[in-house]
Design a protein around this nucleic acid. Structure first.
Lengths: 248, 248
DNA sequence: AGTCAATAAAATTTGGAAATTATTTAGTAA
DNA sequence: TTACTAAATAATTTCCAAATTTTATTGACT
């Protein structure tokens, strides 16, 4: 009897497991956009992406279609795809929307969360607090592990809000905000003490003090936006030209 | 000199104009899901869709990928696509989320809307009020014109909220809610007087009475949900099985 | 120079065949 | 019967070349 091994990954990193090429390419383009590796407004030609991610045109296009629906990418029929543009006005609109939605999510979550919810917050905070913000000791370098745990922490806090829709929307907005954050981080490594902010958020949530939690959350979101604006990024326009194909 | 006609549509209806096949298929699948023509939970095989919409596999898959991101369709890697399932629990979650988001949008819109905003509401209401709810006189039949104007009216009211994000989320939720509404309408033609509700909403908005507008809006949304639940649809389960591929 | 039309080049989009994966069916042994 | 394996079938996914469309270039004319 011959044992057949269904799947063997020759790589050490489990980068794509057993999913499709389209999903793998989706993940990688998304990451490249979030880290600023693919810059805002950049044209995304099929051939370029095909080479860069070593895949056929079909999965690349499927990935782009998904990203366009999430507004990380702009699509114009017969004119292809662009990385979504950024602007100061866009950042402010995004920030306001985040404050509105996260406030609802926070209040609902604090109202309905149970013991399991509390424990997940504590756990997520613990993991996050033991992970360095940057991969590098001296200068800033994107740390995927911190990014993942950071998301998981914030998600844990609002997880009990009772709406998959709301959680999905918040996640989509976090994607967008993360992009701005990375653009600024690449220029000026923020010396901000994020751990204290996260601790304050956790404590307010566990105390079931909705007003305080909302206030901490709001300040957290706004500070992120302020850091980006203070970085005075040369490539961040006040607004995006209405005719720009990178405008969604 | 020979004049070349760039594009001539042999049809009388401008169904797809000069956009791509993928976008056309997207529109048509979306409409079929919203009207219940493609039923909740139904498997969406490429070959079936290819024949039904008379297109190649590539554009069909692109359309499905877009719809999956909007959660009108569920995708599972290597296992294809399903029309998203429906349930009573799902409807309640959807309804709550709509109430939360539309409340914010309404308050912001009433606070920031100008004259142009007011005029668009009046115009949209006028158009809507002169259009019949059903294509047919006696029984219910989907009326695309009414549906379009209905959306435009509700959208006009919250259009000045100042956030494209929020408007997009509300639209996505309206898509979902419309689907439930059509499922119920096919069974029991609601005798509801929607025109009065819309008039009350318009007046509250023009009076800049945010609290009243929010209350009218909330009642409008909840009534839609109640009608669906009261229809006692045989195919509407309490919840969707966690293992169901139609669960997103 | 500037505008316009014709042409050439480049890019997007699409259809279908080939490769991969999942599912069903049939067969075998406990 | 039930559990398990293997083969057959069906479906999804992917690659790629052909068709379409957009964009850039060239040249004629005012």
């Amino acid at each position: 009897m011959v044992e057949q091994i269904q799947f063997e990954d020759s790589d050490s990193s489990p980068k794509s497991a057993s999913t499709t090429v389209a999903s793998s390419v989706y993940d990688r383009i998304r990451l490249d956009i979030l880290t600023g590796n693919l810059r805002p407004g950049e044209k995304l030609r099929s051939e370029f992406l095909r080479g860069r991610y070593n895949a056929g045109i079909s999965p690349v296009r499927e990935a782009l279609n998904r990203l366009a629906t999430e507004r990380l990418v702009c699509r114009e029929d017969q004119r292809g795809f662009h990385v979504a543009g950024v602007s100061k006005a866009g950042l402010l609109e995004l920030t306001n929307t985040r404050c509105w939605l996260e406030e609802i999510a926070m209040r609902q979550s604090i109202e309905h969360g149970g013991e399991a919810w509390e424990e997940q917050i504590v756990l997520a905070y613990h993991r996050l607090s033991r992970t360095p913000r940057s991969s590098d000791e001296t200068t800033y370098a994107f740390n995927p592990k911190w990014e993942k745990l950071h998301r998981e922490f914030h998600n844990a806090v609002i997880a009990a809000c009772g709406s998959h829709w709301l959680l999905g929307f918040c996640e989509q907005l976090v994607d967008q905000a993360d992009r701005y954050r990375q653009l600024a981080a690449a220029v000026s490594y923020p010396k901000r003490n994020e751990r204290n902010e996260h601790q304050a958020l956790m404590e307010a949530a566990l105390d079931r003090d909705a007003d305080r939690a909302v206030e901490v959350q709001r300040a957290h979101i706004r500070k992120t936006a302020d850091i980006v604006l203070d970085a005075k990024l040369s490539f961040l326009p006040d607004e995006i030209d209405p005719a720009d194909p990178a405008r969604c």
